[in-house]
Each structure stands twice: as structure tokens, then as C-alpha cells.
Design a protein around this nucleic acid. Structure first.
Length: 944
RNA sequence: GCUGAAGUGGUGGAAUUGGUAGACACGUUGGACUUAAAAUCCAAUGUCCAUUAGGACGUACGGGUUCAAGUCCCGUCUUCAGUACCA
């Protein structure tokens, strides 16, 4: 019997699929366990070996939990709306749905052959109308809700309407737009329905607003903050500019504090939580109102600022407004108008990127206006400067040069006085911003106080004069929810007189219309502007032709689509009841599965998907739709598998290629070559390269200068990508070595969280382990497992393996358990172990890692009558772990323990006492300890 | 700048959490089997000194605590990731 992995793997994959072996049952008696992967975007390139890393880890964990008697939910699906399919459609005219379906087919085939234990009966696709029906439904719920600060949760918009009609908005404490005019109940009831709708829109959790957005002209769409990296688009690296547009926004800022607090109760990595904390950016301080001193040319006005240092209020020597600040034009004096206008123009021209790249240059202009210090009543010059951002706080700061680096630099640059309000600190060279060591001086009633006391007192005094109060500010801004794209969820929205109306949930889904072109229209409308059947008939409740629009019963539909993160913000709930056509998911299913016990995915989603999905979950929790407000108890970020690129070096201006060792100081141009032409010793297969279909011609006449008879390539570790020719396809690995080898090797490569390079050569190690394992059970004559009584050594090997592997899985250090298996196989081979009492549990143990070979051997043992246990996947192995718990052998045969002994014993006496000790004898199994480390008073270490 | 993670052989990485540093694997070298290759098996493989026995050094660098430090503390440097004029 040979280890024919291809045959075995195909056989069991077929068996699992036909028997729905991994189907999870809703409402089983067993305890539930939910293991979730971040679902993939099915790209046209298919999977490379880096993609399955996290899936293998979660699969091991899921299979382990099944063996422990849990009812495991381990689903998979596709985040199938996205830009690549749309761009392909723009180029080729092929409908993105077709491309997407094809890509999904490839993904599914590739995933299947790795032997994952997914419950495919629960598959979701975000681009499927039966799925996005519920994404639209959630959008409607958000539209129909507002955030009540009194109850600290989202409530139905009808509650707000009731309040408005009975008492106006005076006592409403909601998270809403700024600048809402106060109105009474009488006012409200007298407002036109349109005016009422306008006001309500300012309170809704998803709202339409003219916002300054990140517009990417090359992509023809707006981007969220997290889709921009260093001032250019994350996808494609195109420039991004600021532009005002009417957009749907999500009021995520309402949840800032709860998103922050919620981090305390979930087991996510510290770095990820820290990223989210920074992104939310809570700062506690005060808002302070400065009165602008009125003069002939300007009226009196007020400037509100936010500061985290109200204790330094007596250090204010000027104020700075963002150039975009709305007061600038009002307060600028005629003498300064020219300079101010020129400055505003200059900064507006600078792109976001320039402004970010160049933070050292100090620039600004005096407006000519003065504000009055709230306490000293001294006049304070008001400047504008681009170091103040319009989008944070109020877009204005009180500048305290002695306590803030930027204010200090600004003051120095423009010769503004720098009053010192810190006792015993020299500020002639730099600002002093250490809060902890602060002692305030020169500050009237704050003198002698530390930071904490002075802050409290300053806020109190500001409140007394009505010019300020304590305030908490968050950096987190509302998320723009509109995209000018075709391949996304359509909004369930139509417009009557320009006011958005929700389509009744009973008529969902609103399916994407057909269009001829996937580009924006000539008039600059989003791609849905190309649709001819895209109007809403409010009588028939269906989508009808645009020609029929009469703005009475038939109205235009929204042309934007939802962003990529819409569908991924709630999919984990859908898996619980994926085929429900009546509800988002049934109450029973939601209450049974509740939340994800283990979520594995990449850290690149820290401030995107992982924040937005927490926001939606909290909202759905407020609405009573889901039973928990944090959906993932534990989250692990898997690292990335990188490619090892290979280079040949062309001597500049020639057709000669120098071997890596011969470059020395010569000018060479490194060129990527396909990694498949390079062996483990970095030697290039020149013939292979010259015969390559794609690039052979480029090298046909090339001369390769060898060293020691071979051409050595250079190596570099980079991200796997098509353009670097370092992509390794899992299909090739599976056909050459088998899925079990791939699974083991990906785990063996290193710690799960770490970034590590792929190196195909190394896979022979785990592959020969599997062959060795097979030989332990079978040889040319068939199975060789016997009823023999296990020896002491056999038992020791088995139990230390069980202990170690259990620990490893529970700590997610899958890499070391692969080593443990190898050691076990080597030891049992050396011991010539054939005992089924050893070999049987070993199979159970290894099955989460290498399920195919384990299933095959288990089933053979069953057929042969050697085992009478249950079929493999249903086999509850929890007793194995239990039995090993008290097994009297410690890991690796090493043992250490501490033993109290009298202080005055001699070293020899101590050793004698150790040898006589009962426990020592037992643990050493009669052998003499190699080393005893003795410390006065006790024995610390006995090594056997 | 700030935040987070990390720095161990030629390489990927172990180290029972303060207790034999380098497990396991790749690679390399040598050997067995073979007409040969592949496959398989065996041995060696941190550095330096030594014929051997053995010895010295060694976990980025410099200090410290401890009977004992890769692990803990202080300082420095480097790399990676995220974030950045956030008042």
C-alpha cells in the first residue's frame, strides 16, 4: 500500500461533500462554537499560496473543536462586489456578474482541493440579490433611526417626530448635524412636510449631506479616509482631491464612545485595538468661546475652539483659524484682505498630498482682527494658517506657543510674543508640553496648580462666565456611504422633489439595473445614470422605465451604489441562517449562535471593515435585531506569506547576464524571472527560461556568465504579485505534494501572525513526514497495526504529543505542533511501534492538520476491524486529552521541579536526597539525573 | 514624531515563560543503496581554538538584577507595520 495522496484526497473531499459532513445544525444540544474567516474577494487571478494561510489555521481549530464535541459553525462565502470586476467590465463590456461567477468557480475549486471543513450550505455572496436585499434592509433601518444621547442608543425616528410635535427640539440631545436651528412644537407642526423631512434628515443615522469628500478623478468616485494611503488612492495610487458633493453618510460618530468602550471586552490583539483607538481619536478637553473685538468694519463675532489644555489659557498669545474657516472672510480687515485672499487661494491649490508631505514649512497670514481673552480681556491677534485643519474640532485653535510645539514654531516664525506660564521651565529654545510636570504660573487664579487641577478650575471659571465648557472630541468622522460605481448594492431610495424616500422593505431587493456602459455618464452622473429602466413606481411598487418619470407617482431612483464595506459589515450574522427568505436571520438562529468565537483575518482591515462592522452590530443590537453588541469575541490577525522573487542581472547596455556572485561593482539591471526556473540552491534553469512561452524570446540570444558552472540568481522577499513573477499557485503544490502537505507546510512556516516568505523547497520536509507517517501504519503487505501492548516508550511518546499539540492549538501556535508530530513519527518508527492503542489516537490528533491521510488510515483500520469506534469525523476525542492530563511524563523527557531542603545541607547530601525522593524516582523512571542545579535552601532544577 | 510588533546559525524558526540556547525543518557536506539518476536511509553541520580529550565565545549593542537572563530592568541602535500638523 502506497501513500497515494492525490487519490486519497480526491476520495475524501468527494465523501465530505456528498455526506455534508461539516454541516452545522442550528439549535443542537451540543455547545456551539463559531469559527469565522474573513471571506475573500474573488479576484480574477485566483488563489496563491498566501491566501489559504488563515483558512488553514481556522480549519484546524474548527476540526479540533468538533473532536471536542462542539457543534461547530465554520462557513465561507464571497465578498463579491468590488472594483476589479467593474474595471474589467469597462474594458471588455462583460457584465461583472459573469466575471464574478467565473472567479467564484475558480476560488471554490481551489478551496475545495485544500480540504476545508466549510459548511457550504450556508455560503453567502454579497452581490447576490437574496443577500443584498438584507443589506438594503439594514440601510432602511439606519435611515429610520436617530441616536438619542439620553438613552445612549439608536431609537426609531418616529420617537423623535413625536417629541418634535409635542415639545420641539429644545430638550433633544441627539447626535446630529451641526447648526440645527431651535424650534418649538408649534413651529414643527407648522412646518411643511418637506421642511420636516429636511430637519429629520439632519438626525438620521444615515443621511444625505453636502460634504467635502475625497474625490478621485482617475477612478471617478469618492473614497473613504481608509481607502487613501499617503494622499493617493489605495487602489491604483491615483491622486485624490477635495470636492464638495451630495453624498450618503453614516453617522458612525454617534457610536465613537461605545466603539471605544467595547474594545475592553473583546479579545483582539493589542495592536489592532490600539489602531482602532487611534482612529477614533478621543481627546478630552474644553471648548472655549472667544469674542472677536468689534470695529467699524466688522461686527462682533465669536470663535469657538477646542483645546485639550484649558489649563494653559493664560498662555494664549494669538489664535489661528483654518484657511477654510467660515469666519475668515467676515473678520478680515480691509488692509489684510488681499494677503488673506492670496493665502487662501494658495492653500486651496495645494493638494492634500502636498500639504501632508510638507509639514515643516510654516505659513500663515494675519487677518487684522483681534479676539478678546475671556479672562484678561487682552486683545489677541487672529491669524490663519494651514497647520490648522478645517475638519478637526472647530477648525480653529487658541494658540499657546509656550506649551505647544506647532504654536511655538508659528510664533517664532512670525515674531509673535511667547509668554511663559510655566513655573521653573525655560522656554527660550522650545515649547514645554509635558503635562505631568506642569506647574502653572503667571496665570491669575490658576497659579501654582498642576495640570489636572488647573484644567478643572479653568473649565469651571469658563462655565461661570458662559464662555466655555468641558468637551470631549473624537477624530472619528462620519463615513461617506455613496460610491459612483456600478458593481455595488443599489440604494433602496427614490427622490420626490429632491428629498430621499425609502422604498418599503416589502419590495426588496431592488436589483441592479442593466446598463450598456459601466462608466460614468457624459454629464458626470454615476454609472447607474446609464440605466434606462431605473425609476420607482410608487403605485405598482416596482422599478420601471425612466421615460415614465412624472414626479407624481413615478420618481427617479438613487444613482449611487453602496461602498465595498456595506456587505461585509454584517455577513457573519447571515451565516447563522443564510437561506432565510423571510428575515435577515431568525431569532432562534441568532440567539443560538450569538457571536463569533474565533475570527481570523488580516490586520489591513483594522480601521475599515473591523470598525464598520462593529458599528453596524451595535446599531442592530440597539434595534433589538441581534442579541450581542460585539460580534467577535476573539480575533487573530494572520500574517502574510510573501514571495521570494528571483533576479537575473543584465550588464547595462549589453545582452550579457552576470551570475549573482560576479556583479561586484559592475553596473547591472536586475530583472525579475519566474521563480519556477530557480531551484533551492538559487541556480537558474537557463534552458527553461529560454524556452518560456512568454519571455523565452527575450533571452534567446542572451549570454549567461556562470560561476562555478551555474548561474546563480539574486533573491529578495516581496509581496506575492503577478508582476513580480513570484506567485506560487496552490494547485501546483497540491498536485505535486498533496493538500495535507500544503496544510502542514503553511503552518510549519512560522507563527500564524507573522509575515514570512514562501519557499517551495522546504515542503519536502513535511511531505516526507507524511510518507513516514503512512509507513507507520502500512507497508507493501498492507496494514501493519496490531493489538500489541504499547511499551512504556510508546506511551510516553503518545502522551507528550497529545499534551503539546493540545497546548499548541489552544495557543494558536500551529507551527510547533507540526514539529511535534515529526518527532512523534520519528520516535515511533524507531520504537517499531505497531500498537493500535498508540496509533489510533495519534490519527485523531493529527487529523485537524492533515485530515485526508488521517481519514484514509482511520477508515482502513475500521474496515479491517482493528477499530470499532465511530466514523472518524463524528468521533469525540475529548477523552484523549483528559487521559493525558495526568500522565506522569513531562514534555520532552525533561523535568524540573522545586523541592525545599534544609539550608545547611552539603551539596552531596542534597544530591543524595534528591535521588532518594519518591517523585524524582518516578519521574526519572529509574535513570540517574544528568544534572542537578542546587541553590541554597532548595533544588531548583533536576534535568533527567 | 507617536503607537504597536520584532531583532536568536547559511535559511525558516524552537526554547516547558527565569533553568542544558539553537528543537524541528530547509540548505550544505560526507556515506550507504543504484550501471546511473530519482527516491530512501545513515552521519556531520553556531563560531573559534585543539589531532583527540576538551576548552573559549555566543541570542542587535552597552549596562544592571539573579545561584541562573534569549527571556526581567535601564539606556542605545536597527527593521517592519499602522498613523500623522488631531490643537
Amino acid at each position: 500500500m502506497k501513500y497515494n495522496f492525490n487519490e486519497i484526497e480526491a476520495k475524501w473531499q468527494k465523501y465530505w461533500a456528498e455526506n455534508q459532513t461539516f454541516k452545522a445544525i442550528n439549535g443542537s444540544d451540543k455547545p456551539k462554537y463559531y469559527v469565522l474567516d474573513m471571506f475573500p474577494y474573488p479576484s480574477g487571478a485566483g488563489l496563491h499560496v498566501g491566501h489559504p494561510l488563515g483558512y488553514i489555521a481556522s480549519d484546524i481549530y474548527a476540526r479540533y473543536k468538533r473532536h471536542q464535541g462542539f457543534n461547530v459553525l465554520h462557513p465561507q462565502g464571497y465578498d463579491s462586489f468590488g472594483l476589479p470586476a467593474e474595471q474589467y467590465a469597462i474594458q471588455t463590456g462583460q457584465h461583472p456578474a459573469i466575471t464574478t461567477a467565473e472567479n467564484i468557480k475558480t476560488y471554490r475549486r481551489q478551496l475545495d482541493q485544500i480540504g476545508f471543513s466549510f459548511d457550504w450550505s450556508r455560503e453567502v455572496r454579497t452581490s447576490d440579490p437574496s443577500y443584498y436585499k438584507w443589506t438594503q434592509w439594514i440601510f432602511i433601518q439606519l435611515f429610520n433611526s436617530w441616536y438619542n444621547n439620553h438613552t445612549d442608543k439608536a431609537e426609531d425616528i418616529s420617537v423623535l417626530e413625536t417629541i418634535f410635535s409635542s415639545e420641539g427640539n429644545e430638550n433633544v440631545n441627539a447626535v446630529c448635524d451641526d447648526n440645527i436651528e431651535p424650534f418649538s412644537a408649534e413651529d414643527w407642526n407648522a412646518f411643511s412636510s418637506e421642511k420636516q423631512q429636511q430637519i429629520l434628515l439632519q438626525y438620521r443615522l444615515t443621511y444625505l449631506a453636502e460634504t467635502e469628500v475625497n474625490w478621485c478623478p482617475a477612478l471617478g468616485t469618492v473614497l473613504a479616509n481608509d481607502e487613501i494611503v499617503n494622499g493617493v488612492s489605495e487602489r491604483g495610487g491615483h491622486p485624490v482631491i477635495r470636492k464638495k458633493m451630495t453624498q450618503w453618510s453614516m453617522r458612525i460618530s454617534a457610536y465613537a464612545e461605545r466603539l471605544l468602550q467595547g474594545l475592553e471586552k473583546i479579545d483582539w490583539t493589542d495592536s489592532l485595538k490600539e489602531s482602532q483607538r487611534n482612529w477614533i481619536g478621543k481627546s478630552v478637553g474644553a471648548s472655549v468661546t472667544f469674542n472677536v473685538i468689534a470695529s467699524e468694519t466688522k461686527q462682533s463675532d465669536v470663535i469657538d475652539v477646542f483645546t485639550t489644555r484649558p489649563d494653559t489659557i493664560f498662555g494664549v498669545s494669538f489664535m489661528t483659524l483654518a484657511p477654510e474657516h467660515e469666519l475668515v472672510s467676515q473678520i478680515t480687515t480691509p488692509e489684510q484682505k488681499e494677503a488673506v485672499d492670496a493665502y487662501i487661494l494658495k492653500t486651496a491649490k495645494r493638494s492634500e498630498r502636498d500639504r501632508m508631505a510638507d509639514v515643516k514649512t510654516i505659513s500663515g497670514v494675519f487677518t487684522g482682527a483681534y479676539a478678546e481673552h475671556p479672562f484678561s480681556k487682552e486683545p489677541i491677534p487672529v491669524w490663519i494658517g494651514d497647520y490648522v485643519l478645517a475638519g478637526y474640532g472647530t477648525g480653529a485653535v487658541m494658540s499657546v506657543p509656550c506649551g505647544d510645539e506647532r504654536d511655538y514654531a508659528f510664533a517664532k516664525h512670525f515674531g509673535i510674543p511667547i509668554p511663559n506660564i510655566f513655573d521653573g521651565v525655560d522656554i527660550s529654545e522650545e515649547a514645554f508640553s509635558d503635562k505631568e510636570k506642569t506647574v502653572i504660573g503667571n496665570s491669575d487664579f490658576l497659579n501654582g496648580m498642576n495640570y489636572k487641577k488647573a484644567t478643572k478650575r479653568a473649565i469651571y471659571e469658563l462655565e461661570q462666565i458662559g464662555q466655555g465648557q468641558g468637551k470631549t472630541n473624537y477624530r472619528l468622522r462620519d463615513a461617506v456611504f455613496s460610491r459612483q460605481r456600478y458593481w455595488g448594492e443599489p440604494f433602496p431610495v427614490y427622490y420626490v422633489n429632491g428629498m430621499p424616500q425609502m422604498i418599503d422593505a416589502a419590495h426588496l431587493p431592488i436589483k441592479l439595473p442593466e446598463v450598456e456602459k459601466y462608466l460614468p455618464t457624459e454629464t458626470g452622473e454615476p454609472p447607474l445614470g446609464n440605466a434606462t429602466v431605473w425609476a420607482w413606481d410608487t403605485e405598482k411598487n416596482e422599478v420601471v422605465s425612466n421615460d415614465l418619470i412624472d414626479n407624481k407617482t413615478i420618481h427617479p431612483l438613487e444613482l449611487n451604489t453602496m461602498p465595498g464595506w456595506a456587505g461585509s459589515s454584517w455577513y457573519f450574522n447571515r451565516y447563522m441562517d443564510a437561506n432565510n427568505t423571510e428575515e435577515f436571520a431568525s431569532k432562534e438562529a441568532l440567539n443560538y449562535w450569538k457571536d463569533v468565537d474565533l475570527y481570523i483575518g488580516g490586520s489591513e482591515h483594522a480601521t475599515g471593515h473591523l470598525l464598520y462592522s462593529r458599528f453596524w452590530q451595535k446599531f442592530l443590537f440597539d434595534k433589538g435585531v441581534v442579541p450581542v453588541d460585539e460580534y467577535a469575541k476573539k480575533l487573530i490577525n494572520q500574517g502574510m506569506i510573501l514571495g521570494t522573487s528571483a533576479f537575473v542581472y543584465r550588464e547595462e547596455g549589453t545582452n550579457t547576464y552576470l551570475s549573482f556572485g560576479l556583479i561586484e561593482n559592475k553596473k547591472v539591471q536586475p530583472l525579475h524571472v519566474k521563480v519556477k526556473y530557480v531551484n533551492a540552491s538559487d541556480e537558474l534553469d537557463i534552458e527553461g527560461l529560454k524556452n518560456d512561452e512568454e519571455f523565452g524570446d527575450d533571452y534567446a540570444d542572451a549570454e549567461f556568465i556562470l560561476e562555478n558552472g551555474v548561474y546563480k540568481v539574486g533573491r529578495d522577499v516581496e509581496k506575492m504579485s503577478k508582476s513580480k513573477y513570484n506567485v506560487v499557485n496552490p494547485d501546483d503544490i497540491v498536485s505535486d505534494y498533496g493538500a495535507d502537505s500544503l496544510r502542514l507546510y503553511e503552518m510549519f512556516l512560522g507563527p500564524l501572525e507573522q509575515y514570512k516568505p514562501w519557499n517551495t523547497a522546504g515542503i519536502t520536509g513535511v511531505h516526507s513526514f507524511l510518507k513516514k507517517l503512512w509507513k507507520l501504519y502500512a507497508d507493501d503487505n498492507g496494514l501493519k497495526v496490531t493489538d500489541a501492548t504499547p511499551t512504556k516508550d510508546n506511551l510516553k511518546t503518545l502522551h507528550k504529543t497529545i499534551k503539546k499539540v493540545k497546548e499548541d492549538i489552544e495557543n494558536f501556535s500551529f507551527n510547533t505542533s507540526v514539529s511535534t508530530f515529526m518527532i512523534a513519527a520519528n520516535e515511533l518508527t524507531a520504537q517499531k511501534c505497531t500498537s493500535k492503542e498508540i496509533l489510533e489516537p495519534l490519527l485523531v490528533l493529527i487529523s485537524p492538520y492533515a485530515p485526508h491521510i488521517a481519514e484514509e488510515l482511520w477508515s482502513q483500520l475500521r474496515n479491517n476491524g482493528s477499530i470499532s469506534k465511530a466514523p472518524f469525523p463524528e468521533f469525540d476525542a475529548s477523552h484523549l486529552v483528559e487521559s493525558s492530563k495526568n500522565y506522569p511524563i513531562s514534555f520532552n523527557g525533561k523535568m524540573r521541579f522545586t523541592m525545599e531542603l534544609p539550608m545547611d545541607m552539603s551539596k552531596d547530601d542534597i544530591e543524595a536526597a534528591v535521588l532518594a525522593h519518591e517523585k524524582t524516582q518516578e519521574q526519572l523512571g529509574g535513570r540517574t539525573p544528568k544534572k542537578v542545579i542546587v541553590v541554597p535552601g532548595k533544588i531548583v532544577n533536576i534535568v533527567g
